[in-house]
Design a protein around this nucleic acid. Sequence first.
DNA 1: TGAAAAAGATAAAGCGCTTAACTATAAAAG
DNA 2: CTTTTATAGTTAAGCGCTTTATCTTTTTCA
Lengths: 338, 338
Amino acid sequence: MKVTIYDVAKEANVSIATVSKVINNKGRISDKTRKKVKTVMKQLNYHPNIFASALMGKQTKTVGLLIPDIANPFFSELARSIENRGHEKGYNLVISNTNYDSVKEDQYLSLLKQKSVDGFILASGFENLDKVQGLMKEDIPVVIVARDFPMFSVNAVALDDFMGGYLAADHLIKLGHQNIGVIARDLWSNRERLRGFKHALKEKGLEINSNFEYIKGLDHVQAGKKLTQKYLTSEECPSAIFACNDLLAAGVIQMAKELGFKVPEDLSIIGFDNTAIATIIEPPLTTIAQPIESMGKEVMDLMISVIKGEKTDKSRITLLPSLVKRKSTEAIKIKGKK
Amino acid sequence: MKVTIYDVAKEANVSIATVSKVINNKGRISDKTRKKVKTVMKQLNYHPNIFASALMGKQTKTVGLLIPDIANPFFSELARSIENRGHEKGYNLVISNTNYDSVKEDQYLSLLKQKSVDGFILASGFENLDKVQGLMKEDIPVVIVARDFPMFSVNAVALDDFMGGYLAADHLIKLGHQNIGVIARDLWSNRERLRGFKHALKEKGLEINSNFEYIKGLDHVQAGKKLTQKYLTSEECPSAIFACNDLLAAGVIQMAKELGFKVPEDLSIIGFDNTAIATIIEPPLTTIAQPIESMGKEVMDLMISVIKGEKTDKSRITLLPSLVKRKSTEAIKIKGKK
DNA sequence: TGAAAAAGATAAAGCGCTTAACTATAAAAG
DNA sequence: CTTTTATAGTTAAGCGCTTTATCTTTTTCA
């Protein structure tokens, strides 16, 4: 039924060891035998059983990807990009949706460890450093993406979130906005974005009073709406809102409209990520773009080089965000004037 | 280093066969020994090596999911739902993005076969029946989702696409539309939708002249825009457009606006899928809803029961679509009147 | 021409597990 | 008290592959 290394060996009149050698390009083999064996392999449509070799400690060409929410466009685009690069390089992806849930993170980690994935790409919340350190202690390749652990030696490819926040604030300030609301889930990357944001404000002598605001248990769009409602009906109604991802921004726009605010005339909105939805919503969203495509490529490449042992030192690749101006932001109107 | 069945056996003073038996709940084991072994397993934090058992023909608790485009919200939501259900039941998902490319489909199929996934969930285009039949001949569990092969015995969970198309047409007709454009990629499910659509028209004595229209090589949104431009600037400018997925519909709305058409006043638009973007775009999209959540659950459950051999006969589960009315469709204005 | 070195191929052990066949023990039956 | 039978546990083969030590053949060159 299933063709094994024995079948090939018999057919080619050699030992299984010889076959193994040509499979792995190891040891001394004459060209003649190599050719013969290869021919037979083709002819029999032989494919080595990965499990048998995994048993012997070889790689499985599979990497685990832990992601908080595959249905969030940023993550699904990132996943697609990682997957593509993986496919190019001969790696498969076991994708696990953690739903920002640390219990699930744990479960997946031990499950996939058991399934001998060659390494882990963590795009999850992972506020918990311990788990990552645990993996590293066991010498399991780990790469973090879209999330940085400062002060901690780990392979990572991340966005300069600080700069992203700075860019957003800078844009808004230049348009004359001074009273700006922020909506962000309390994650590390968002903390950085907020830091950059505040830094820009400070440079111009501005202050921001609003801090982390987020409503758990809702999806991003709903959370964006709720918070926007709160902001826009409060006393110091902001003239602009910085939403820390595009989904949130979509919610902001929706609620603004529902409350009778015109975007961008009455309220400027800037998002983050530059996913497909930024161009789908109305008005098209001004947003801070993450280079999702190269991010995926870089992280997969890094993962592979770690797996192959080419990298012994840790490295951190930082990609830079950029401002994409569309229609959801504009210069503030002078109050009272028309 | 790694703790094996031998370590457990030694520690518990039994043979490895006994340990194996308690792991798999097989054979005769006294309660006392069972408890003892279990304790030791916990204590040593032992986890069986899946590969070793896979080598012996046991399951890997991994299923392959082939999907055309994980970044399309319909598929990412579907993937999430499948993944969730899988996780509940102890299965992992290897997700492969085929990009509607039959070469990639082939590659993934043989690759994952080699990696001994327990079965395949095919959400891909798979116009090619042969491959599916090939898998089935090898007795590899296969379930098709969101895509039906009529006249062919295969496990599937699908939407009643015919009804979906019918519902869309019915809604539009009741609103008085007679001249309706259709945008759809030429896939099986869309052919069914179109058939249902036309059926409804025929019932009312209406005809549709436009047929399959799609532009390959573009993403859905762009394709939707291009085609809309063509329709709206043509002679028999339609009063309504049926787009066979929400992404396409988003493109339609965008282009309509760009051309100065008001939605829904000048042009009614109905989508398909009811993904998150339906509520994000402006105006909110009237669309035919697929029960994505239950679809994912059903397909995973079906897959598992096939894997476990509980199902010997093929079965086809058909879910029903429903119309979700939002703001992108309205009754047609009588021409000339105001 | 012959001994040493190099090259090519092999046998066999072992990775961690399952399982069929078997042995030992205890309980039931004659 | 021996024989049968059910029960509890063990032995050992083997899944398909890698790899080390070993053996055989060919090449090299003094």
